[in-house]
Design a protein around this nucleic acid. Structure first.
Lengths: 200, 200
DNA sequence: GTCTATATAAGGATAGAC
DNA sequence: GTCTATCCTTATATAGAC
């Protein structure tokens, strides 16, 4: 809580990220954000005018730390299988540090008031990945499958445990602090899965 | 809209399901539910006392139509691989008819006010599936892997496209009505994937 | 820039007539 | 059981002093 060095605007943004990600837009209160920031409610409006505008700033910031970083894993040269395994590692390691982000993003794009936020999401994965798949297919390096289905599968394998963490913690009877270890181990488990799926 | 035959209580429940599943607990308004039900707000409280109580009824009802039906796929005898492929088919076909249910459940169990609702979820899959996996492993019928990780994977493969539907519709540039066709095709695609992962 | 006090609106819940 | 009218709390937003 070394907020001493942050400007008021930064303190507000930091607090807003914490509260919006934890409670969602509808479940968040401006008063809660002010409390976490250690300032009063009026200042939120002084800096950001409205709850909507503050939320949009938080969403923009989080999106920019999310998709580009993970998509970058797809940018380097190499065979399709390598790109995918690299993506899995980057994605899960990012989620281990940002476990609430997936539900936050999914709620936003599924919210009828916020549906146009989908435009803010830079969805590079399909474009970057699918041509590479077909190139490798021609060379016999990968099995025949539907690359769109495969992309959905890989993303789901990575993200879902973070979304359903309370259910898995309860179902598998694990301690909360064990969860991160399981996610770390999951990286290699998923690499094995995708190699089995992709190798002809 | 043949609500004529329904009792008032049933009309309210039906409307509450629609609104709570679409907008979430925090995003839902008692007035919206009353409007959808075609009655006035006071009647909601007459029948269900409070928003919390109404929500709990909706959650209970949906959970009872969800987990038991899908878990039942795991109950019949047979090899592990067959159970999994049967589960995939039952699960995806259920989700095609209930596309909003996953986000609704995940938001509920991740909501700090509703976290104890996790106890209502009958999580049979781990108990039913993991012993069967080890039995088949001894007979050399399945590859060595971590069954807990595998369960998370299968669930994620099935559920995630429904959670992220707006993103995939945008990313893959598909029409909204094509989505269901893709999910239908997904059943066989996923059956192939799990066979590749599981077969020694 | 930061605070306290307050305006204004929204939404859950209830009272009371029919 | 069903309605209209209203209460009361909560929450966003603003006014104005410092």
């Amino acid at each position: 809580m070394e907020n001493e060095e942050l400007s008021t605007e930064e303190k507000i943004l930091k607090a807003a990220m914490e509260v919006f990600l934890r409670d969602g837009y509808d479940g968040s209160r401006m008063q809660d954000i002010a409390d976490v920031a250690g300032i009063n409610k009026a200042l939120l409006h002084y800096y950001f005018r409205s709850k909507d505008k503050l939320f949009e700033k938080v969403f923009d910031f989080k999106i920019q730390s999310f998709f580009p970083q993970v998509d970058a894993a797809l940018d380097q040269e190499g065979p399709f299988i390598d790109k995918i395994t690299f993506f899995i590692e980057a994605y899960i390691n990012f989620l281990r540090k940002n476990p609430f982000l997936p539900l936050f993003v999914l709620n936003t794009v599924n919210n009828k008031e916020k549906a146009e936020f989908i435009k803010k999401i830079p969805i590079g994965i399909a474009h970057k990945i699918i041509p590479q798949y077909y190139a490798d297919l021609k060379e016999g390096k990968v099995r025949t499958l539907d690359p769109a289905q495969f992309v959905m599968t890989v993303m789901g394998m990575c993200v879902f445990p973070f979304l359903a963490k309370p259910i898995f913690v309860s179902m598998l009877k694990i301690e909360d602090h064990n969860f991160d270890m399981i996610m770390e181990a999951r990286i290699n488990e998923l690499k094995t899965y995708v190699k089995l799926i992709l190798t002809p």
